[in-house]
Design a protein around this nucleic acid. Structure first.
Lengths: 214, 214
DNA sequence: CCGAGAAAAGGGATATATTCCTGTCAGCAA
DNA sequence: TTGCTGACAGGAATATATCCCTTTTCTCGG
């Protein structure tokens, strides 16, 4: 289901995520700045007007966003999750829709035409290590006993959970909020509002948390 | 990113899932049967033609499909898993606590007595599958794009994060707060205070989230 | 083989999203 | 103030997706 209201809200949300207005978004995509004007969302007689698929394609291209991310903003209630039953070795996978639950047979095994094999990208040799969390200091994200797997080769991007080793103190688990030319800004996993700022030269090393047992 | 080829493939796939041809799909949606004709997918001069979002809305409405299901097959590249959990067996693991710091050598490799090989519980006979989280409804625990691996054989205990399939609604990701003789009590991953209570007989099945990409 | 029905090609007409234009208004800086 | 910029409204022109119609092709029963 895709409503007129939803699609315009998704466009606004996309623009906002990239610090743009709807007209700025249109311009960046090579469209006329008035394409997404509020005044163009309903015809004179009140009938809804729909953006073209080609325009959608262009704004996704211009912002580098995926379709999945775009539609994720459509219906927060729907909370779409895509199910991909995979075994650890690379297995059948299927998408899951909100109205037709992914098919499982009587034994609970994935079944039906929706499933297809999942292919995982080849994994380069990486120096992985793991830390087991002790105590409840990282709730609600990590519980006592959780194991987090850390890669020091994977590039760290904004929003990633990381292990940071500052030069003068011990390892901590944080979330990278953003980075500036000279410093990193971290926030606590707990969601507390406090921020930690560290200059690039004050960070001994940093690794990205790629998996976590639950 | 949304390509011309992808969107037409998604329409064909949608029709096929419902046992229809592209013209049958158009008719069912109240559109002209020729709307999705292969001959209408490119203009006479070879330029691509895009279906309108209004038509997309109508075929989703007619088939009862969600946007998420529709776009699920579009972009397999989108959700890339960085590692396979099975690859984690044997990597060095150390306790992460406030008191002790684990040692690394000059090259950044784990060293010292604090580390030992990670052992994973055997899962040979287990039915594992995964869900790819879309949207920000599960923050701060899971981000958009995170992949959670679910086991339906691992015993579920209080405090575990689980996938619940109620008899009359769709799968949801929750945290099991506690269980009584007749019911389960869940709380949302988001940390909201609301609780969801489900009788044992109202739960179709439940699986435990054992790993999650981050 | 023949006919019925559906799918699909092809072309003209229509509907509508976008573009292009002008103008208003708000915010901001000199 | 003045000038500049961007957001936005509104209208006309253009571009294009859909609709409507006809014809052809294909499949399936008889």
């Amino acid at each position: 289901m895709l409503s007129h209201e939803q699609i315009w809200a998704a466009i606004d949300a996309l623009a906002k995520r990239h610090g743009l207005t709807s007209s700025g978004l249109a311009k960046r995509a090579g469209l006329d700045p008035t394409t997404f004007n509020p005044s163009k969302r309903f015809a004179g007689d009140g009938r809804p007007r729909w953006p073209s698929t080609e325009s959608l394609s262009k704004i996704l291209e211009a912002t580098g966003e995926s379709v999945g991310r775009f539609v994720a903003g459509l219906d927060p209630e729907e909370r779409t999750v895509t199910a991909r039953p995979e075994a650890f070795a690379g297995i059948p996978v299927a998408a899951f829709s909100s109205e037709a639950d992914a098919d499982f047979d009587a034994k609970g095994a994935p079944t039906g035409p929706a499933w297809e094999p999942l292919t995982l990208p080849p994994r380069k040799a990486d120096k992985l290590f793991a830390l087991s969390v002790e105590g409840d200091g990282l709730l609600p994200v990590y519980r006592h006993g959780d194991v987090v797997v850390i890669s020091r080769k994977t590039p760290v991007r904004t929003g990633d959970r990381v292990v940071v080793k500052p030069k003068n103190s011990q390892m901590t688990l944080l979330c990278l909020e953003h980075r500036t030319a000279k410093a990193y800004v971290f926030k606590a996993l707990s969601g507390a509002s406090a921020r930690l700022q560290l200059g690039h030269e004050d960070v001994d090393w940093m690794g990205r948390i790629v998996w976590a047992s639950q």
